[in-house]
Design a protein around this nucleic acid. Structure first.
Length: 814
RNA sequence: GCUCGGGUGGCGAAACCGGUAGACGCGAGGGACUUAAAAUCCCUUGGGCGCACGCCCGUGUGGGUUCGAGCCCCACCCCGAGCACCA
């Protein structure tokens, strides 16, 4: 090697351009998907290609995931790290509408920009397998999935309310309703009932919940899913009404049935008509109309003042045999439970409010310690445990949990109820009355009804239409496109009409990870061999904002495909880790707040490596943090120092021949710590440990080549271009990513002498240096020679000694 | 209201299983080099007292458990995220 006395300075721009080109040439990031001996599928959540480009939050997430993937690569895995674009959906569509540009033209431009940025930060992406959900070669299979679910009886159509703006005459997404008004024209929003497509995810509720136990996922994410699925245990009970029918209710408090003094149905409940008496008809109808005139958002989160009307009808409480009035009120939701409740005002806050407002009887059926059957209720006593039953016939005196079981059993004997579990999870509505999505592959025929488009006719292409805006027709813009709209019925050939709704973006993203390894196959959504080799995903890293919907939908679809015999596994993501959110000035970055940080300028100024490493250093990856550029200079300084060390180590080896023992220990400790931290995604502390090592080397004036080399390798996941360049300067012709992660010697991670803290009565008074693993006696002896310790101990009896080897000695005196 | 996070120097943050609080970095102050500046290098940097050895105080608040608590328990305050009449 030529001995250069004049060392050139670190020039990020040149280094990064050089290595980006070389990786592409050498195909460094393209594992052999068919033959890779140690496959590792490293997945990150694919971005939605907004017009603004990748912001710092995206960069943070991708860099973290890429850093981990590169670490795995160094450990010898064949890492497959694909990337793609989640480019359908209302965000793109709204933006296109605003600009007056068809999303067909807009999206490719955005994707180009994203691609440029993603290449610039040096992600280890396998670009051969890039995908976009808007590509017909992709959404053909999204539509195919719909057909599979339809055939399996898991896709069905039913009426459901949507938000409707009477001025814009269009359907609005929940996010477009602000304070009950249309975000564009400020008109109060109404709800409209439309026929829509649903997936029966509720059928999988229990499995989706139970499987969580055995997944290696961030606990926060699992908790969010559990809450969302929302299992509650209770009973289903039938309250007979005239005409042989019954009102079916679900309750978590069957023990309080003796206190059910009235019933409440959702205004849309199918039994309302039958129950309403002629005198009450007008009022009931008026109420139902008023409820319907409200939008979905404000009905759910609007003011809590109870409203409702009496239907005139009665049902019989099966426990007491007493007729109780049936009301309707909008606090009972048709979508939850059975759309009807038994109201127990004594023990439920909402029922209490309602009863108080309308003068309905309130009966106590649970009493706390010191209360009797007649103790008046000023508030609902909703304690789930601790109380005992009163006014409940032969169940009086039972504790609540016991009463639940006994009463449920009794109702079952009577044939009017049974134990039941219920889930908060609703079926997944996939219909969107919009343009920018994959058309739902259904043709309606007057004779045959809804008929799925045969698989060989997929994809149903989204036509490039001039006017893609939603308009006053009340249906998707696609309905105006006649030659597309009319299509022959696949079953009988008669003229049929296409479904004009497109599917939810969440459907696109619920299976993309299955597609990545198989992007080159046009005749199958995912190749069985490839799938067996690469899936389930080894590690998935993404934002907690998708902890619920996206991850749940992906799990659901995977389970369905498993049940249909198309996948050998039922959980798609073996390991999931949620990263934190990058905020700016304490608030989420958003265009409206004007606090979006564009990474491009930082990368231009500092280089990708410095920026990547800075993002990983600014806070714990799994917590995120506030973006500020104040410390970025520190990272650059650090890289400059490493650069200089590399230069020095080329000229002079070791610390004059032999590595000093303390340096050796520090080195091995660092290798150990960095490896452990990387695995735990504790990137900030891994970087800190490497900085410590560099400081240590400088203090000891040691530039040993082996030490420097291992440092370069450990740095490579964070600063890949930089590390490659250093590796080359160290004389290696191959990629640093083929160097292998350094190993530490377990015997060298503990120094020969350790500092032990000496406490007296729990207060640290001094420190003493003793040989490693010194016996307690020896440590005590050394400690008692220490002057400061003696001042606190002398003349007192040592009553107790606590010794933590190599750490601490606590002398208790008194 | 409910659920989940989180409150540690001037700032971003460390701290394994309850065992030396503040690693690492930024910023700041001082010094070296330089005609000068930048860059670089060295020293100092939680608060208070002290010439110093050292001592007292200190992890949102109040209590508790423990030889020992940032960490565990009880009560509360504040900030962030999500859910929101869920029967």
């Amino acid at each position: 090697m030529t001995d250069q006395t004049h060392e050139s300075a670190y020039q990020p721009e040149a280094v990064e351009a050089k290595w980006a080109a070389r990786w592409a040439e050498r195909r460094t990031n393209e594992p052999d998907l068919d033959r890779a001996p140690r496959p590792f599928y490293n997945l990150m959540m694919f971005p939605y290609p907004s017009a603004e480009g990748l912001h710092v939050g995206n960069m943070f997430a991708f860099t973290g995931s890429d850093t981990y993937g590169r670490f795995k690569r160094l450990q010898g895995y064949d890492v497959f790290e694909p990337i793609g674009f989640d480019a359908f959906g209302i965000h793109s569509e709204n933006y296109a509408i605003k600009l007056g540009v068809n999303p067909n033209q807009l999206i490719p431009r955005n994707i180009d920009n994203f691609r440029r940025q993603l290449r610039r930060i040096g992600g280890m992406f396998d670009w051969r397998h890039e995908l976009s959900t808007t590509d017909p070669a992709y959404y053909k299979w999204t539509q195919w999935l719909f057909v599979q679910l339809y055939k399996a009886g898991l896709a069905y159509r039913k009426s459901a309310p949507v938000n409707w703006c009477p001025t814009c005459k269009t359907v609005l997404a929940n996010e477009q309703v602000v304070g009950g008004r249309c975000e564009r024209c400020d008109t109060p929003v109404e709800q409209r009932i439309l026929e829509q497509w649903f997936f029966r995810i509720t059928r999988y509720a229990r499995r989706l919940l139970d499987n969580l136990e055995r997944l290696d996922w961030s606990e926060t994410t699992k908790t969010a899913q559990r809450n969302w699925i929302g299992r509650s245990d209770g009973a289903r009970i039938r309250f007979p009404v005239e005409g042989g029918q019954a009102i079916d209710v679900f309750t978590t408090r069957p023990d309080t049935i003796f206190g059910a003094t009235f019933m409440v149905l959702a205004p849309e409940h199918p039994l309302v008509d039958a129950l309403t008496t002629p005198e009450r008809r007008a009022e009931v109808d008026a109420y139902r109309r008023a409820v319907q005139a409200r939008d979905i958002v404000s009905r759910k989160i609007g003011d809590r003042e109870k409203t409702g009307v009496f239907t005139g009808g009665y049902a019989t409480n099966p426990a007491t045999g007493v007729p109780i009035p049936v009301w309707i009120a909008d606090y009972v939701l048709m979508e939850y439970g059975t759309g009807a409740i038994m109201a127990v005002p004594g023990h439920d806050e909402r029922d209490f409010e309602f009863a108080a407002k309308f003068g309905l009887p309130i009966v106590r059926v649970v009493a706390a310690e010191g209360e009797g059957p007649d103790t008046p209720l000023t508030r609902p006593y909703a304690e789930n445990d601790g109380g005992r039953l009163v006014n409940s016939g032969r169940f009086d005196g039972l504790a609540v949990p016991e009463a639940k079981r006994r009463i449920t059993a009794w109702l079952a004997e009577l044939g009017v109820g049974e134990a039941a579990e219920h889930y908060r999870l609703h079926d997944w509505c996939i219909s969107r009355q919009r343009y920018w999505g994959p058309p739902i592959p259904i043709i309606y025929c007057d004779r045959c009804g809804a008929v799925p488009v045969p698989e060989q006719d997929l994809p149903v292409l989204l036509p490039a239409i001039e006017d893609f805006r939603p308009d006053d027709s009340g249906v998707s813009p696609l309905a105006r496109h006649e030659e597309w709209y009319f299509a022959p019925c696949p079953q009988c050939g008669a003229r049929g009409r296409r479904e004009t709704d497109v599917s939810d973006t969440f459907l696109d993203s619920a299976w993309y990870f299955l597609r990545y390894p198989s992007t080159e196959f046009d005749d199958r959504p995912f190749d069985p061999e490839r799938t067996r080799k690469w899936l389930p995903v080894t590690t998935y890293i993404g934002g907690n904002e998708h902890a619920v919907l996206h991850l749940l939908y992906a799990r659901f679809l995977t389970m369905v495909l498993h049940d249909l015999g198309r996948l050998p596994f039922e959980e798609p993501f073996t390991r999931f880790r949620a990263h934190g959110l990058i905020v700016k000035d304490g608030a989420k970055m958003s265009k409206s707040r004007g606090n979006v940080v564009v990474p491009d300028e930082y990368i231009a100024r500092w280089g990708a490596d410095t920026f990547r490493m800075y993002l990983m250093f600014l806070g714990p990856f799994q917590e995120g943090g506030d973006f500020r550029d104040a410390g970025i200079n520190g990272i650059r300084r650090f890289l400059d120092r490493v650069w200089a060390l590399v230069g020095e180590s080329r000229r002079q080896d070791a610390c004059g021949g032999e590595i000093l023992r303390p340096v050796l220990v520090k080195w091995h400790q660092t290798i150990k710590k960095v490896g452990e931290d990387m695995e735990a995604l504790s990137f900030n502390t891994a970087i800190a440990a490497m900085m410590e090592l560099v400081n240590f080397l400088r203090e000891h004036n040691c530039v040993d080549r082996a030490v420097v080399q291992s440092l370069v390798v450990m740095l490579a996941p964070f600063a890949p271009h930089f590390a490659e360049e250093c590796w080359e300067r160290l004389g290696h012709p191959t990629s640093v990513f083929d160097a292998g992660w350094p190993a530490h010697d377990p015997d060298l991670v503990v120094a020969d002498e350790v500092e032990v803290a000496v406490q007296v009565n729990g207060k640290t008074r001094s420190r003493v240096v003793v040989p490693r693993d010194a016996a307690e006696e020896a440590v005590v002896e050394t400690a008692l020679r220490d002057e400061t310790v003696r001042r606190f101990v002398d003349g007192k009896a040592i009553r107790k000694r606590i010794h933590v080897p190599n750490r601490l000695l606590n002398l208790v005196v008194g």
